[in-house]
């Protein structure tokens, strides 16, 4: 643990002033924005966010931007390639001494799960294999949120979305993007959630100290997409961790370490029952089989963790 990372022990150690500007068009209670503003506080304004199409594309709508640093919107599929271009250009400018070190920026990719798990996956894979020195932040709200929450490669099993409205919800299973990224052996991979700001801040601080590809998936509770009152955003994020649905972990130096093992682990039902997208599991009749299956899946994950 680095010194700076070790300094983040309590909420008190988090920054008290926030860098990300107010006045964004993100929904009230947006879990993605919560994670982004926590990340930005640690990452700092000497950064350029290279964005892929998604909810957060609307963060910068002419002439308004919440960023104190820089921003570049690309397209849905190729934000990591945009980061490549910016990073390479900055390196060239530094090498050729056309700019000073003080002008350098941390290059960060910002995408939703639609881009990260799907259309942008090959661009991400390419950037990792080229050992691009960048930070990748995926705000994962488990669906194509900006278009009204259709299912994506990140949608969990059984969740109701605009394109999986049947009695069993989404038939597929959430893709394990963490494992896909880890398989590339990048410098750093971590899962975070805005509801656990200390864990998040430590991880971003750690990522900041490393070079190479550093990839972060932030679970982004989404009031309209997941069907809950905005005020519950933090509680739902916290429940995702405490029920074991969203394991907080990191990959560094070739090892995966869980940074917060829920103990005792709360029943998955506590997480599911608070969200409209899982309401069909509870009414008009409890779907015991499906609930048991979802619990078993989480149990199996944690069984393998403790082995």
């Amino acid at each position: 643990m680095s010194a700076r990372e070790a300094m983040i022990k309590r909420m008190k150690d988090l920054p008290s002033t926030h860098l990300l500007g107010t006045g964004t068009p993100m929904c009230a209670g947006c879990g993605g924005l919560e994670a982004l503003h926590e990340v930005y506080d640690v990452l700092g304004e000497n950064s350029v966010f290279v964005n892929a199409a998604g909810c957060m594309t609307l963060l910068s709508v002419y002439p308004f931007t919440p960023f104190r640093g820089s921003w570049l919107y690309t397209a849905m599929a190729s934000a990591p390639a945009g980061a490549q271009g910016v990073r390479d250009a900055l390196d060239i400018l530094l090498e050729k001494k056309r700019v000073t070190k003080a002008e350098d920026l941390e290059v960060a990719v910002l995408t939703g799960d639609g881009a990260a798990y799907g259309m942008g996956l090959s661009a991400t894979s390419g950037a990792i294999e080229r050992n691009l020195d960048f930070l990748y932040l995926c705000y994962d709200n488990e669906g194509y949120g900006n278009t009204g929450q259709q299912y994506s490669g990140a949608t969990p099993h059984a969740a109701k979305t605009a394109t999986s409205g049947g009695p069993r919800g989404f038939a597929g299973y959430k893709k394990d993007l963490f494992a896909i990224w880890v398989a590339h052996k990048p410098a750093y991979v971590a899962t975070v959630v805005g509801a656990e700001p200390l864990d998040l801040a430590r991880k971003i601080e750690k990522a900041k100290q490393l070079t190479g590809p550093r990839l972060i998936i932030a679970l982004a509770p989404c009031p309209p997409g997941w069907g809950y009152d905005p005020k519950d955003s933090v509680d739902i994020g916290r429940l995702a961790v405490r029920t074991g649905v969203w394991p907080l972990k990191e990959y560094v130096d070739g090892k995966v370490v869980h940074t917060k093992i829920p103990h005792p682990r709360r029943p998955v039902e506590e997480y599911l029952s608070k969200q409209g997208r899982f309401a069909h599991l509870f009414a008009p009749k409890r779907n015991e089989a499906l609930l048991a299956q979802l619990q078993a899946k989480v149990d199996a994950y944690w069984a393998q963790v403790s082995e």
Partner: peptide, 19 residues
């Protein structure tokens, strides 16, 4: 160019209206 050359201009958007 569709570029903004200033930081944090979004504070001019009064999202308090949504409340």
């Amino acid at each position: 160019a569709p570029a903004i050359h200033a930081p944090a201009t979004s504070v001019e958007v009064k999202t308090g209206l949504w409340r």
